[in-house]
Simulated assay, not measured.
Amino acid sequence: MKVHGFSLLELCVCLLLASIVLRWGITSYQEHMQQQGLQAATVLLKQDAAYMAEYYARYQRYKQTASSWPVLPHTRYPESGAAQYDIAFGSVARNTDNGYYVLRAVDVADRLRYVELTQTGILKYCQSADGISMCRLQP
């Protein structure tokens, strides 16, 4: 008599292979979503920098007062729902020259990862570890 079907061993091997492929797919998807969030936060930083250029053209300074920055149009990504990046100035206004600013988008999930943009247009992607920031410039 001939028996049709799968053995328990064949079924376990198929489930193992499926779980490996699924794990690889989930990891790739998560990396893609992180990269998308980073790119979107970078776009918002550039829009805030354009706002600051207009502000400077109007008032001949970047600071609102000696101790405060103007309110940025974009302060988080995404603008609604759970924030992935917080966007703000990278330094306090009191200790900064009138002709200089740094904008920073900080990853909410990993506060040690951030993107930085200066008034000169220098864009850096940074990661901090043990009190040391390692940055790479945008290619």
Rank of each mutant, 00 (worst) to 15 (best):
I132C: 05
D130E: 10
S19Q: 11
S67H: 08
T96V: 06
R111S: 11
D130L: 14
S133H: 06
M52K: 00
S128C: 14
E54Y: 13
D107L: 04
S128V: 11
S128L: 10
H32P: 09
R61E: 07
G37Q: 09
V71E: 11
V115N: 02
A41H: 01
T75Q: 05
R111T: 13
L9F: 02
S133M: 06
Y114C: 02
R23L: 15
D110Y: 07
S19I: 05
Q64Y: 13
E116H: 08
I122N: 13
G99P: 03
D110S: 02
P73M: 01
R76V: 03
P78K: 01
T118R: 03
T118A: 05
A93Q: 02
L72Y: 01
A50I: 11
S133Y: 07
P73T: 01
Q127F: 15
M134K: 05
R76W: 03
L9M: 04
R136N: 10
R113I: 12
Q47C: 05
Y85K: 01
L17Y: 03
G99M: 03
G25Y: 03
L45H: 07
K63P: 07
L117A: 00
H74A: 11
A40S: 12
A53V: 13
H74L: 08
H74D: 04
A53P: 14
T65D: 09
G37F: 07
A93C: 07
P73Y: 00
C14P: 08
D97T: 07
C135Y: 10
L103Q: 02
I26R: 07
Q39K: 10
T27Y: 04
W69K: 05
S68I: 11
W69D: 12
Q47D: 11
V13Y: 14
I132A: 08
C12V: 11
G5T: 06
Y56T: 03
K124Y: 09
M33S: 00
M134T: 09
M134R: 08
P73S: 03
Q127I: 15
A82E: 12
D48H: 02
Q30L: 10
S133L: 04
G131H: 03
Q84K: 07
V21T: 12
F89Q: 03
S80R: 03
W24N: 11
I122L: 12
W69P: 08
F6Y: 12
